[in-house]
Design a protein around this nucleic acid. Structure first.
Lengths: 156, 156
DNA sequence: TGATGTTTAGTTGTGCGCAATCTAAATGCT
DNA sequence: AGCATTTAGATTGCGCACAACTAAACATCA
């Protein structure tokens, strides 16, 4: 709070921006996953959906969206592709016909075994110590929490 | 190296994965930029392109791609939209007709002034101390460097 | 010099993300 | 019960990302 909020031209330096570092790192890490996931026939977002299903079993589209911070505009077509691949089933919840429950097929369940070693392999490939990765993850979670909690902090 | 590389089922916990934290944080931060950039008529990737142009002046498509880690499949249509918006010009380099040089129009140059305060405003909105953001950025850069440097570390 | 290979952009096709809109089912209110 | 409101999911449209391919310009060298 010294003499802040006077815009510094240097602020527009691409390399100084955390947001760009985040954007670049996210794509780079996803690219690391790609050849591995290709063997499972999954894209990275599809893999995230499978992670939730492997962990929690049958899950509604709404709950999937809350876990992954994705809306139905993204999930609906993605789940349709997973269903076409024979990995998941979709069915209306008889107790609430608005809700669609996604569950694993036997084929989707079996895929779990092939996925078990992936996270560790990727973590090691980055060459960053596990402790540093853990603190990185915590900082990222803090940022995500603040950023998503903010409805629209407009000073107008 | 104690008793590692035996796959632990817990490894598939979504919340433990750095990659998901990265993916979620990147989208959350981009969402924070969105209302601000909307006022400039820019998307986030378009803003990144403008950052490079504001900093370096006329730049080839290839150099833009190297700075932002994006290929022509992404940049060509993006630049076409920036050109349609009247913010940039595109012209073949007379010295090497393969290369296309992107430069700012007066309108694109003026936009810089409106963008100057953005990074600081976003950084403050996250509530994370500047020092922590700086170390976060450095860790992210390290990960990006390793991940992009790896051509394909397949043990086959 | 002419054949060959490389570099640079652009195009096409697929799959996200996300805003906006739509439909149907459930819920609340009187 | 009757009707407005809310909720869950799907659809549409646009803009990235990225792989695969094409075409033109340049480089190289027998």
């Amino acid at each position: 709070m010294t003499r802040a909020d006077r815009p510094d031209p240097g602020d527009l330096d691409l390399q100084k921006q955390v947001c760009f570092a985040l954007y670049a790192a996210s794509r780079a890490l996803t690219a690391l996953y790609r050849p591995v996931l290709d063997r499972l026939g999954l894209t990275y977002p599809q893999y995230l959906v499978m992670l939730v299903l492997w962990e929690r079993g049958p899950t509604s589209v709404k709950a999937l969206g809350e876990s992954l911070q994705l809306d139905s505009g993204t999930l609906s077509p993605l789940l349709k592709r997973l269903e076409a691949a024979g990995l998941v089933d979709r069915a209306r919840d008889p107790r609430d016909e608005r809700s669609v429950v996604v569950s694993l097929t036997p084929s989707g369940d079996r895929l779990r075994e092939q996925a078990t070693g992936i996270p560790r392999a990727i973590a090691e490939a980055t060459g960053v110590p596990a402790s540093e990765l853990a603190s990185l993850r915590d900082t990222l979670r803090k940022i995500t929490e603040v950023a998503t909690a903010t409805p629209d902090k407009e000073t107008t």
